[in-house]
Design a protein around this nucleic acid. Structure first.
Lengths: 196, 196
DNA sequence: GTCTATAGTCTGATAGAC
DNA sequence: GTCTATCAGACTATAGAC
């Protein structure tokens, strides 16, 4: 029982890294087995098929994203709103610069989703929650008077687009002032409030 | 000679669509041959290998992007600067909504590039020219007084990030007010000029 | 739980006739 | 130029011993 758990985790971790580095198609079960230090058929004891292994990893990743993208609005005030937004982005940028695997494998899943509704349904849920979180945040900003009420949804969309795409550009090795760009995006969006 | 040209073009067109729809690995030469209406070995008369075919399409796509992303600043004035930026984005959004193949296959190449320097070198050139074009445009905007000179590079980056990511979101079928978001991005970036 | 052995399928690529 | 025939190799997955 103890050994089962350990091998299982090793398969999951190794598959995660190898799928991220080589892609799903160019990562065979034989490669994963070799990486773990077991034989190929041993993987089938834990996962019914390669596809099931891919599906399992997708669900794990989705859960993680849902947790990370959650925003709680409770402690936000006029004084810390901008700093909160800035920190949220900075934290994401730092995480994406640190963990290359995550973005690579997630892009694999996005491409998979464009060809397979099973993944697209799940992906759309994540996107929706992402946009809703930022929308909620910006509307709260309007409420406390730090965001101009005009085109709130579009302002929210801009922030999502920028922070999401920073990850993609990091992936290509492009060295840009990402934090500066995020800061400018936040400031652009918060500009123009009438204090009357 | 005439027949050669026709078959050649058919292979290129069919491969383009099939690679976009199924991905490189899940599109075999047999499938392409069947789509064209020839036998598999016939493809080898035109392309030395599957990889060479993939490389050729990549170069074609790169050329097209380089042309489309080129911006000429000559006719821009204080009066038409904002409208030019808006139209540039609107045109890109419309094209991306129309041609689904282009974005799908380009994302394939981006993933390929993260695993193969041959493609990454080319991809980085495209990105560089893209950022430079927008940077040049924004600096021209500063010069004629429609863009605030503070953080010009970051403002330019925001526009690139937004317009680039709109394509990705269209790919996932997400229905958003893309044109409105672009409009808001342009206005956010152009805001705050001091007319003194 | 993990192994060896292997079935069955598909792949990219080549040889050689027409 | 295009074909039929065929290759070696890699793949997922399974059977059955231990």
């Amino acid at each position: 029982m103890k050994d089962k758990k350990e091998t299982y985790d090793l398969i999951v971790e190794t598959a995660y890294k190898m799928f991220a580095e080589n892609g799903f198609d160019k990562t065979s079960l034989a490669m994963i087995a070799k990486g773990v230090g077991i034989s190929k058929p041993a993987i089938y004891y834990y996962f019914d098929s390669k596809e099931k292994l891919i599906d399992f990893l997708f669900e794990e990743i989705c859960k993680e994203i849902m947790i990370q993208s959650t925003i709680t609005v409770d402690d936000l005030t006029v004084n810390n709103f901008e700093q909160f937004l800035l920190n949220f982005g900075f934290k994401m940028i730092e995480e994406q610069e640190r963990d290359v695997y995550f973005n690579k494998i997630f892009n694999e899943y996005i491409l998979l989703a464009t060809r397979n509704d099973k993944y697209m349904t799940q992906l759309n849920k994540i996107q929706k929650s992402y946009f809703e979180n930022f929308s909620m945040l910006m509307n709260y900003g309007v409420k406390i008077g730090v965001v101009n009420r005009d085109n709130v949804e579009n302002k929210s969309n801009i922030l999502v687009m920028v922070i999401d795409n920073i990850g993609n550009f990091i992936l290509t090795g492009l060295e840009l002032d990402y934090k500066g760009t995020w800061e400018e995006a936040v400031k652009s969006v918060l500009k123009g409030v009438r204090n009357d």
